[in-house]
Design a protein around this nucleic acid. Structure first.
Length: 280
DNA sequence: CGCGTTTGACCGGCGC
DNA sequence: GCGCCGGTCAAACGCG
C-alpha cells in the first residue's frame, strides 16, 4: 500500500470538476435546427441510454452515500480514539497512585517521567529542572516479541549509545541518539512493555531540528517514500510498517473529510464521470 | 578502515 | 551520608 498511489503520476485526478458533462463542440450538440432531421432510432436509443445512465447515477449516488457514511463512521471512531488519547495525555497522574508494577517508595522523578507522556501537560509538582526539559512523547509499536533488536523504524536514523535493564521491567531499555544530524538533540528510549512484550514503547525526547529527508545520502530511506513525515522506511517488519501506514491513511482520510470542497468535488466528479457515458 | 553496536564503568539525582 | 537507580560514556568488538 503505502504512498504509491499518491506518487503514481498515472493516477489522474481529472475529475471534471465544474465542467459541463458534454463537450460543447460535440456533433450531437451543434444545433437544434440541424438535429431535427436526425432519425428517430437514434432518439430512442438515446432515451434508453439516458434511462440506463440515470439508473447508474442513482446507484452511484447511493454508493457514494454509503461510502460517505462509512467514512463518517471511521472519522467518528478516529476522533473518539484521538480525544481519548489526548485526555489521557492531559490527565495528571493520580495522587500517590503508582502503577501496579511500581513498588512503593518508587523514585519521584521516575514516577513522573513514566506517567507523563508529554511535558506539555500541566504538571504542578514538577521539579524546576523539568521546566527546561525537551518535549517528550511516547510511541507504542507492535513488534515480534522474539525480535530483540529493539528497533523502531520511524524514518530517522538513530545511533544506539546504551542499554540498561531497569528495575520495573525485565526487558532491557535501549538508548538512542539521532544520528541524522550531529546537532540534533533528540533522544529515544525503546523498551518492551512489561505487560505485553509484543509492544515496543519508544519514548522520544526533544524535537528534530532537521527535515526527515533533508540529509544527503541518507541510506535508510526508500527513494519512493515521498510523503512528508511518513514514518516508514526500508526493510522494517511488516507490522511496524502497517502501523505507520494506517496512521497515515487515517490522517489523510481525516484531512480530506474536513474539506467540504473535496466532498463537493468528489460528488461532482462522480456524476461528471457518469454522464458522459451516454455518448458511447 | 570506518562506522555502528555492545557492555561494563561511571556519574549524578533522589529517597531514606 | 549512603545506597539505589536511570542515564551516559567510552573502550572493545563486529561487520561490511
Amino acid at each position: 500500500m503505502g504512498s504509491s498511489w499518491l506518487d503514481c503520476p498515472s493516477l489522474n485526478l481529472d475529475l471534471n470538476v465544474g465542467l459541463l458533462p458534454f463537450p460543447v463542440d460535440s456533433p450531437k450538440a451543434v444545433s437544434a435546427v440541424e438535429s431535427k432531421h436526425v432519425d428517430k432510432k437514434v432518439s430512442i436509443k438515446e432515451e434508453k441510454a439516458i434511462k440506463a445512465l440515470g439508473a447508474e447515477l442513482v446507484l452511484a449516488t447511493e454508493e457514494n452515500k454509503k461510502l460517505s457514511e462509512v467514512l463518517a463512521a471511521t472519522i467518528a471512531s478516529y476522533s473518539a480514539v484521538r480525544k481519548q488519547l489526548i485526555e489521557q495525555m492531559n490527565t495528571p497522574p493520580p495522587e500517590g497512585g503508582s502503577r501496579s508494577n511500581s513498588p512503593p517508595g518508587k523514585r519521584k522523578s521516575e514516577s513522573l517521567d513514566a506517567d507523563m507522556e508529554s511535558t506539555s501537560s500541566e504538571g504542578s509538582c514538577k521539579r524546576v529542572r523539568d521546566d527546561c526539559k525537551p518535549k517528550v512523547w511516547k510511541l507504542h509499536v507492535r513488534s515480534d516479541p522474539s525480535d530483540t533488536s529493539l528497533v523502531v523504524r520511524d524514518g530517522y536514523q538513530w545511533r544506539k549509545y546504551g542499554q540498561k535493564v531497569t528495575r520495573d521491567n525485565p526487558c532491557p531499555r535501549a538508548y538512542f541518539r539521532c544520528s541524522f544530524a550531529p546537532s540534533c538533540p533528540v533522544k529515544k528510549k525503546v523498551q518492551r512493555s512489561a505487560e505485553d512484550t509484543s509492544i515496543l514503547v519508544a519514548t522520544y525526547e526533544g524535537e528534530h531540528n532537521h527535515d526527515l529527508r533533508s540529509r544527503p545520502g541518507a541510506p535508510s530511506l526508500r527513494p519512493n517514500t515521498a510523503a512528508p513525515d511518513l514514518k516508514s522506511s526500508g526493510s522494517q517488519p511488516e507490522m511496524e510498517s502497517q502501523e505507520f501506514q494506517r496512521s497515515l491513511v487515517e490522517h489523510m482520510a481525516f484531512s480530506l473529510s474536513e474539506d467540504p470542497a473535496f466532498k463537493a468535488a468528489l460528488a461532482t466528479a462522480i456524476s461528471g464521470k457518469m454522464l458522459p457515458l451516454r455518448t458511447s
